[in-house]
Amino acid sequence: MLDDLDRRILRQMQADPGLAGAELADRVGLSAARLSRRIERLRDQKILRGPRAVINWRALGYEVEVSLRVTLDKTQPRAFDDFIEAARAIREVIEIQTFVGRVDVRLSVIARDMPHYQGIYRDQILSLPHIADIEALMHVARIKSDESLPL
Results as ranks from 00 to 15, higher is better:
137 L>S: 14
112 R>P: 03
89 A>T: 13
84 I>F: 07
108 S>F: 09
129 P>Y: 06
99 F>Y: 09
138 M>R: 14
137 L>N: 11
119 G>Y: 06
88 R>N: 12
95 E>Q: 14
123 D>C: 01
142 R>M: 09
105 V>R: 02
139 H>R: 09
127 S>E: 06
121 Y>S: 07
134 I>N: 00
109 V>L: 03
138 M>E: 08
117 Y>V: 06
89 A>E: 14
90 I>F: 03
99 F>I: 03
121 Y>I: 08
129 P>A: 10
126 L>H: 04
91 R>Q: 08
115 P>V: 13
92 E>P: 01
125 I>N: 02
116 H>Y: 02
106 R>Y: 00
98 T>C: 13
93 V>W: 01
139 H>M: 12
118 Q>D: 09
105 V>P: 00
128 L>N: 05
106 R>D: 08
100 V>G: 08
143 I>S: 12
101 G>I: 12
128 L>I: 11
108 S>V: 14
116 H>F: 02
117 Y>M: 06
86 A>G: 08
103 V>E: 09
125 I>E: 01
113 D>M: 05
136 A>G: 14
123 D>M: 05
101 G>N: 07
136 A>C: 12
135 E>T: 15
143 I>K: 09
136 A>N: 10
84 I>R: 11
98 T>Y: 08
133 D>P: 03
146 D>E: 07
126 L>I: 07
135 E>Q: 14
87 A>H: 02
137 L>M: 13
99 F>C: 04
134 I>C: 00
85 E>P: 01
107 L>Y: 01
138 M>I: 15
110 I>V: 11
124 Q>M: 08
135 E>K: 10
96 I>M: 06
119 G>T: 13
104 D>I: 06
109 V>Y: 01
99 F>N: 01
121 Y>W: 07
82 D>P: 05
146 D>A: 03
136 A>T: 14
102 R>S: 11
84 I>W: 05
87 A>E: 02
138 M>P: 08
93 V>F: 04
115 P>N: 10
112 R>S: 04
94 I>Y: 01
96 I>F: 04
83 F>E: 02
102 R>E: 11
91 R>Y: 04
141 A>G: 08
98 T>V: 15
146 D>K: 04
124 Q>S: 10
108 S>W: 07
141 A>L: 12
96 I>G: 03
81 D>M: 14
